[in-house]
Amino acid sequence: MSFFKKIFTKEKKENLDKGLEKSKASFFDKLSKAVAGKSKVDDDVLDELEEVLVRSDVGVNTTLKIIERIEARVAKDKYLGTDELNQILREEIAGLLSETHDDQKNDPFGLESEEKPYVIMVVGVNGVGKTTTIGKLASQYKAAGKSVVLGAADTFRAAAIDQLQIWADRVNVPIVKQNMGSDPASVAYDSVENGKANGADVVIIDTAGRLHNKVNLMNELTKIKRVMQKVVPGAPHEVLLVLDGSTGQNAFEQAKQFSAATEVTALAITKLDGTAKGGVVIGISDQLQVPVKYIGVGEGIEDLQIFDRLEFVDSFFNQ
């Protein structure tokens, strides 16, 4: 069931191109140095390419998969020139991403359950842009004519509640909150109950971003999920992990820890416009086998974009 049309406008494509400029410039600078003076894709070039991909935050395991794919192409075609390397990389990385992103079946802004409200639990450490992502999502759902309720279940920090209130006021959507130090599960329960009672289409629940004690985090998230299911069986319908793309491989480590604490079903990778670490999108998606649903390529509300693997690869490799 889709409430958002998956349309990549010219303006959004330009924003994506601009947002990936630093990553692209850094990658091609390294790549051009790696193949300088070489005309054929051979073992030496592949060794250099492997290093370039790792240094571009694609990650070791994903890099090895890409190299294996290119080696297979070289073996099949017998001769590949270095001038073809860019196109080969486009095709193989798009193919790799297609294993976790089915463009035909998934509309990333679609609500995959017909039950109302559709409940999204948002997780991630402090500082990754979690609250901003929630606010931008709320704005985009509202722009599509859908009613939204926000739940301030990050009761560990007073600032988190205040920040979500600012977004609720800005977007003009209701927020359910309690005092700092309140039981997060109680806030989540009230939020879902409010959404159900008022016929809301979407309830978005913020959660605390602590990772210092994974056992406590796991217990807290499990409890939140359990109490929400008393109101809406099957909730949350989506567990969205927000990661800061500018932290590179640190984002991957966070992703692994949160995946161990709760069942993450989708990823949002933010702050890609201010960094040269855009390759982390490829590695995280591949290694976790969890689809990237949104990427942040700027400060504007519209700069939280649907992740389209083909558009992303096109922007990343378009010189």
Rank of each mutant, 00 (worst) to 15 (best):
S259W: 10
I93T: 00
G81I: 07
A34Q: 04
E84K: 12
I204T: 00
I66V: 10
A276V: 02
M218D: 13
I306V: 13
V290A: 05
T270R: 10
L272F: 00
D43G: 10
T262E: 07
A159L: 01
P184V: 11
K225V: 14
V280M: 01
G127F: 08
I295V: 07
P233Q: 09
A185H: 07
I166Y: 13
L240P: 05
E71V: 04
K225F: 10
V123L: 06
D77R: 15
S182F: 04
A159G: 12
Q305W: 02
G181A: 11
P236T: 12
L310P: 05
G300P: 09
E263W: 08
D102P: 03
W167M: 02
I282E: 00
L53C: 06
L53H: 01
N15D: 13
D206C: 04
R90F: 08
L288W: 00
S182Q: 12
L64A: 12
L49F: 00
K22C: 04
E114G: 15
V45R: 00
T82I: 01
A160Q: 00
E50L: 03
K214E: 14
D286H: 13
G95I: 01
D102W: 04
V280H: 00
T222P: 09
K142R: 12
A188I: 05
S139M: 11
E238L: 08
Q289W: 12
D201Y: 06
V41R: 05
N194Q: 13
D103C: 12
S186C: 11
V60A: 10
T132R: 07
A34C: 06
K30M: 07
V232H: 12
P174K: 07
A159E: 11
V231M: 11
A185P: 05
L304A: 05
H101T: 03
D43Y: 13
A153F: 02
W167H: 11
Q140Y: 11
E14F: 06
T132M: 08
I161W: 04
V281P: 03
E302V: 09
S2P: 05
G248W: 06
V192R: 10
F109C: 12
I161T: 06
F258S: 06
L164M: 07
Q163V: 00
Q257N: 15
A188G: 13
N86K: 15
F28T: 03
L243T: 08
Y189H: 11
I120Q: 07
A159R: 09
S2W: 12
P108D: 14
K12R: 13
I88W: 02
T262D: 06
G209H: 03
D42C: 01
K18C: 09
V149K: 09
T155L: 03
S147K: 15
Q104F: 14
V187F: 01
F317N: 00
F8N: 14
N216P: 03
K196R: 14
D190C: 14
I120H: 05
V45H: 04
Q229I: 08
